[in-house]
Design a protein around this nucleic acid. Sequence first.
DNA 1: CACTAGATGCTCT
DNA 2: GAGCATCTAGTGA
Length: 196
Amino acid sequence: VTPDKVRGLLSRASWEVAPELIGWTLTHEAADGPVTVEITETEAYAGPLDPASHAYRGPTPRNRVMFGPAGYLYVYLSYGMHWCANITTGPDGEASAVLLRAGAVVAGASVAMERRGNVRETALARGPGNLGRALGLTGALSGSDVLRSPSLRLQPPGTAGQVQVASGPRIGITKATELPWRFWRQGDPTVSATRR
DNA sequence: CACTAGATGCTCT
DNA sequence: GAGCATCTAGTGA
């Protein structure tokens, strides 16, 4: 699958792309080692129609990458200490993105463990802040092309092993809580325990 | 297991 | 200055 084809897939509505990203892998090769995460939980965020989105009130220095083409990393600092990662979606000019909420570390577990401290393997990338930490992501990477960057790589599953994807309301927001825009792999141990 | 309180600092109004 | 797209440790059962 070529980067152009993947970018085409990502250039659709975030709520359509978000469930499809379950099972994809994201790799970050940092100075202290490479880590690959298989995505198990996502959330969709849109633009002017989505009050919970960072892009709701239009472009700012922080969120401007959301307004560009699909397939770029949007990283923001949450509560002053957690780097959270999104993949931008939708056509160029329309703001939307998919928040990566959890994943399974499928390569570089020892490196991820160094970054996260002594936690269970299934908890290494559980929760958006922990996923960012396990991958070694920071705001410096916001705006990177995840399809053509040397240190970042988003890849579709090899053989599409059919997985059951569940959906429900998004977590940790106070607006537009009725939209079922959170998606997760049914029963997966890397998804928050009470929400599998 | 369920629930809560507090840390913490950036972003935009 | 208000408000967070969060996390951990703590309590109580």
